[in-house]
Design a protein around this nucleic acid. Structure first.
Lengths: 362, 362
DNA sequence: CATCATTTGGGGAACGTTGTCCACGATCCT
DNA sequence: AGGATCGTGGACAACGTTCCCCAAATGATG
């Protein structure tokens, strides 16, 4: 049956697989000019008269020519930028990608994404190599776990922007959230509501060496600092799991096992906060009456009325847009390193309230 | 300051930008063989003695050689497969990608993703072209909105798998969920709980021409059919928005405006169901006592205790794994078209319950 | 020991672009 | 009028692979 159908079609509409692509040479022949001329028109290069430009453009249009990216890669630009993303499951990254898309819109550059695998350093390395081997014009890495030395190596080969890490490097640009400020906002918010036993859910460091400067480090550190500054050093309680629903769930159960249990939980990311809400619900505790919960990232879901999660907004779209802009600048030739930091804002919602038994109230 | 630092480093560690990549020729020189020999070893091709293989492999190791994908693309394989994804925000796609990643794991193939833009046909076309122009070895399209004729054109140029569409084509393979069965499960579930006024949230068709066979069509159609079969043709109420939180929210408000209002809402996707829950909460209605809500996709969040959304599970990971396997088979030479359909299962949770005033109960 | 088959290794022409260099003719300045 | 300058277009050598050939060496067969 399949054989019959296929055979028929093969005979009928010449289904010969290798129907060659239209190349620059075809265009040149059709427009009666040299391939060089066509290339010049394509690149808007110097040395082509308006008359010739029109002729070539017409031929391109007629033949439906599209440049062959792989061939371009052998010489000049690819007009491709590579984006390394830890995992597509995190909705915050979707915001970032929206920003990247916006900025790249009319630029003629195309973004290709590869998944790095969040916590698996080997997988991330392979993903980075894949990008480098594919000769992209520049790379944007979102929260990579790769050591700084390797990042600088990559930056030596092609323009690089790192989003979400705090280290300072002269080899690449950095775009990040002021996690210190953001964390201070949430923790103070909870303290002002009268909470003293405030737990925190953090993330495990990837790899074995010195941990890289990812947001979870800053957030945990600032949490410690603010607690200490308010005389709550003794109440510090950190559950180190992962910033996923499961991680938030497990971390919350770990924190609830303490006695007395915390009256507030600051999850380092909204995704973990969702898991926390679920664990609290399961434990029969009410939010925020028994336990307050705050997240970070202000994802779309946090704003839903039935969730109404207090969170910290860090404008991922702006970060993505900026990162893309910086990368294009680098591709166009800038070499001086730049750093861009967005200022976060607290978005109080219904998941946080006065500590049980405290006088503070809305 | 930047000038000083940069200047210093430049002098110190020879920061000359174009530090050439190691090529096949370098390896050949180092191993004292021809480039042909190296290429043979790389491709496991015939015509190389074990001794030579070892020598070349050692040289590759020593020099840290990695093949240059762009150069490869000019001749043979790229060892890259392209994945078109409507938008990374939908968590169901994350499951699919997990499956793709699993299957591609040790295969030597690398997946690159491009975002199509969900609802914007022009954007999706550009994304597809980007993949074709980059000479990937095969393409996996997830729920594309592009017309079938164009898909067949692409399939003429390279192996293609389409995930999530129901049309039959001899040019490409299809992997999809049995949406008809899944929808029947939910709608019957609601009817068995005593509901009669069951609203449905569907998605707008993209583009102007004949709509393509995407899941929302089947789901809406089956919803209609099952309602009619149970004598509820008069109760059919469809809000056509989009399968996002916002879409679910708007659609629910639209459905609630009817009088009498529905006692159950079947959202065509979990994301829309989340929006529905939010809208109901805002309207002061309780779930499931006043209104039951069911989704589709069984995303991670649906299982969280505080959400507990009844949904239809359609093993996205299996779909992704299968799609990747089929694509590799095609890349390796298979030409006969295949179709693979996964059977969905109902996952009842707390968001659905007996219709108010009905005798049915748990 | 001559002949033929098989194994082993390499030469070199693609693949589709880019960009440097050169030639030609027209225009401009003294 | 003679030289310099400029604007226009093309020839051609890369870029890093693959793979079709062919040559030489080796082994098998009569």
């Amino acid at each position: 049956m399949a054989g019959h159908g296929a055979g028929h079609e093969a005979g009928h509409r010449a289904e010969r697989e290798p129907r060659r692509r239209v190349t620059i040479a075809d265009v040149a022949r059709h427009a009666q000019v040299s391939t060089t001329a066509v290339s010049k028109v394509l690149r808007n290069a110097y040395g082509a008269s308006p008359a010739m430009r029109d002729r070539v453009k017409a031929a391109i249009e007629e033949l439906g020519y599209r440049p062959h990216a792989a061939a371009r890669a052998m010489r000049g630009r690819t007009f491709t930028i590579g984006v390394l993303i830890p995992h597509v499951r995190n909705p915050f990254f979707a915001d970032v990608l929206d920003g990247v898309g916006e900025q790249l819109g009319g630029s003629g550059y195309q973004a290709i994404l590869v998944q790095g695998g969040s916590t698996d350093l080997a997988a991330e390395s392979r993903a980075i190599e894949a990008l480098v081997d594919r000769q992209v014009d520049g790379i944007l890495m979102i929260a990579p776990i790769t050591p700084k030395s390797r990042l600088e190596e990559v930056a030596g080969e092609m323009p690089l922007i790192v989003l979400g890490r705090h280290e300072r490097s002269s080899a690449y640009d950095a775009v990040f959230d002021d996690d210190d400020a953001g964390t201070e906002l949430v923790v103070r918010h909870l303290i002002e509501l009268g909470h003293r036993r405030i737990g925190h859910i953090s993330q495990r460091n990837a790899g074995r060496g010195k941990p890289v400067a990812l947001p979870h480090l800053t957030r945990a550190e600032t949490y410690r600092r603010v607690m200490t500054e308010h005389g709550l050093a003794g109440e510090i309680a950190i559950a180190t799991t992962s910033w996923t629903e499961e991680g938030g769930y497990d971390g919350t159960r770990e924190l609830l096992a303490r006695s007395p249990r915390p009256t507030a939980i600051f999850a380092g990311a909204d995704q973990a906060a969702f898991g926390a809400l679920s664990a609290l619900h399961e434990a029969g505790l009410s939010v925020p009456d028994d336990v307050s919960v705050a997240g970070y990232d202000n994802t779309r879901l946090a704003a839903m009325a039935n969730i109404s999660l207090t969170s910290v907004d860090q404008d991922g779209t702006l970060m993505g847009r900026t990162a893309a802009r910086l990368l294009l600048e680098r591709v166009e030739g800038r070499t001086a390193a730049m750093r861009f930091s967005v200022t976060p804002a607290l978005v109080p919602r219904l998941s946080t309230g006065p500590a049980p038994g405290s006088g503070a109230g809305a």
